[in-house]
Computed example of a mutant assay.
Amino acid sequence: MASKPFIALATTVLFFSLIAVNHFGKPFHGKLGEMEIVPITDTVGPESVAFHPVGDGPYVGISDGRIIKWQPNEHRWISFGITSPNRNHIAVVLSGDKTGMLLKYEQESKQITVLLTNLSFPNGVALSKDGSFLVFAETTKCRILRYWLSTPKAGNLETLAQLPGFPDNIKRSPRGGFWVAIHSRRCKVLSWILSYSKLGNALIWVLPVDVITKAYSVMSKYLGSGLALRISEEGVVLETLELESGNKMSSISEVQEKDDHLWMGSINMPFLGVYRL
Rank of each mutant, 00 (worst) to 15 (best):
K31V: 11
V93C: 03
A161M: 12
S79E: 14
G81A: 15
E74I: 01
T83F: 08
N118V: 04
P85Q: 01
T159C: 12
E239F: 07
T117Y: 01
G165H: 02
T140S: 15
T113F: 04
L272Y: 08
H261I: 02
R76C: 12
P208A: 10
L227D: 08
P85V: 05
Y147N: 00
I252H: 03
L149A: 05
G235I: 05
T213I: 06
H23K: 05
Q71E: 15
A2W: 09
T139R: 11
T139P: 03
M219V: 11
T139A: 10
F133D: 00
W70Q: 06
L227N: 06
S250N: 14
V54P: 00
L149I: 10
P208G: 06
T11P: 00
P167F: 04
S48Y: 09
M1K: 12
K141F: 10
L149P: 01
Q256H: 13
G246Q: 06
F178Q: 00
I7T: 10
R146F: 03
S173P: 10
Q111Y: 01
G265C: 08
F271M: 09
F16K: 04
L238Y: 02
P85N: 01
K26T: 11
E239G: 01
F136G: 06
V125M: 09
E34D: 13
V189Q: 09
I37C: 05
N201L: 10
L229K: 07
R143G: 06
H89D: 09
G235P: 10
A228K: 04
Y196M: 11
T117C: 02
T113W: 00
G25A: 03
R185P: 01
H261A: 14
L163A: 07
A137F: 02
V60G: 08
E234Q: 15
N22D: 15
I204Q: 09
T139I: 08
F16W: 11
A91Y: 03
K141T: 14
L127F: 15
Y196F: 13
K248P: 00
A154N: 05
T139S: 15
E36D: 15
N169L: 05
M264D: 01
Q71G: 01
W77K: 11
V49D: 04
I193D: 04
R146W: 01
S232L: 08
Y196V: 12
G246W: 07
I78K: 13
G224T: 13
R276W: 04
P152D: 14
R87G: 07
D168E: 08
L32A: 12
T99R: 14
D56V: 00
G177S: 06
I67N: 07
P58D: 11
G30P: 12
L32F: 10
I37H: 07
T83S: 12
L116C: 04
L203F: 13
H261M: 14
D168K: 02
W148Y: 13
T140G: 08
W263S: 03
E108S: 12
V92P: 03
G165K: 02
G124I: 06
H183Y: 14
S120D: 11
T139V: 07
K221E: 13
K258L: 13
V93H: 07
V93G: 02
T240Y: 00
Y196A: 10
A8T: 05
G100K: 04
Q256D: 09
D259G: 08
F133T: 02
D64P: 06
I182H: 06
A126Q: 01
T41Q: 15
E47T: 10
E233P: 03
Y275Q: 10
R76L: 13
A126S: 15
S95F: 02
W192K: 15
I40P: 02
N88G: 07
P208S: 12
